[in-house]
């Protein structure tokens, strides 16, 4: 059975961020991926310089219009994933275009809308703050079923600073009050000097669970890591009938860690050095074998539930 997803994120010619980090892993898992590119850059800015342009509002609008002319979004797409957008105008267009086409009747088939609210990392915004209210609007729309923020992004969206498990719980409660989103994954949360991957799933209104896995941290910054994470989560989310679970999160965390390890090892080997603090290009292609195996058994016994 074929499965189809619309991915709206950045394009770079070289390296693996945005759609370049999402499209191939999804395709390799059997997805037909329709891709709208929100940028047309040579490479991501982490290289120190880049060329190219963000996709204009007119072109983004046109691409949506063109697509609407040939496919029925509700019938065609199992999922829509939205990631990096260069400015608030383009993000608002994406919101308007999707809102206009998605079935508002809850009993009818429509795609799962997965949002990676790309705002920044480690206390630093890398988009205009004007993007924030639009993400809040999107999350409140009732169409979004899964979000994949990092800790910083989740703090902004819930207006809750996370320092310990009490504030983690508080942030999820706030997210529920504000947005009523049923599935949330935070790729990495720092509590007492330890990194955790944290998941939240609410099958019914007041019936939710919060679970976490400790992450073995590689002390290195990997560009595109969040985009790859979102793609991996989306695929497993689909496999588990659109419910987030410890098995889903565990599998993704193991895969991601294996890919980062391989990337790291290839990087130091290529450069002939003993360590690096940053890797600009994930080795997604040479890690393709990792994308297919089920790794949840390797980690599932390390899950903790937050009461």
């Amino acid at each position: 059975m074929s499965k189809s997803v619309l991915a709206v994120s950045s394009h770079v010619s070289h390296g693996y961020v945005g759609n370049r980090a999402m499209v191939f892993p999804l395709q390799y898992n059997g997805w037909d991926v329709d891709a709208i590119n929100t940028t047309n850059y040579s490479n991501h800015p982490g290289y120190g310089s880049f060329a190219g342009k963000p996709t204009s509002s007119e072109l983004v609008t046109d691409l949506f219009k063109g697509l609407k002319g040939i496919v029925d979004f509700n019938d065609t797409y199992d999922m829509v994933i939205t990631g990096y957008t260069p400015n608030e105008e383009v993000l608002d267009i994406i919101y308007q275009q999707l809102l206009a086409v998605l079935n508002s009747d809850i009993s009818r088939k429509k795609p799962q809308w997965i949002v990676d609210p790309v705002l920044g990392d480690n206390g630093r915004l890398y988009v205009s703050e004007k993007v924030i209210p639009i993400y809040k609007k999107i999350l409140s729309s009732g169409f979004v079923t899964l979000i994949t923020p990092n800790q910083f992004e989740f703090e902004i969206l819930t207006e809750t600073k996370i320092t310990d498990w009490t504030s983690v719980r508080q942030a999820f409660r706030r997210a529920h009050e504000l947005y009523k989103i049923t599935n949330i994954v935070i790729s990495s949360v720092l509590v007492d000097g330890q990194m955790f991957g944290v998941g939240y799933s609410a099958k019914a209104e007041e019936q939710h669970q919060i679970f976490s896995f400790p992450i073995s941290q590689i002390h290195c910054h990997f560009n595109g890591c969040g985009d790859l994470f979102t793609a991996l989560v989306a695929n497993q989310f689909h496999e588990n009938k659109y419910t987030l679970s410890p098995k889903v999160l565990g599998d993704v965390l193991v895969k991601l860690n294996l890919i980062l390890e391989r990337t790291y090892n290839e990087e130091i080997e290529t450069k002939g050095v003993e360590s690096v603090s940053e890797v600009k290009s994930l080795r997604i292609i040479s890690s393709r074998d990792i994308l297919l195996a089920d790794h949840s058994e390797d980690i599932i016994d390390r899950v903790s539930y937050l009461k």
Partner: peptide
């Protein structure tokens, strides 16, 4: 500019 970047800068 994109080709310049790939060829000369990167």
């Amino acid at each position: 500019p994109i080709l310049d970047q790939l060829l000369h800068k990167l």
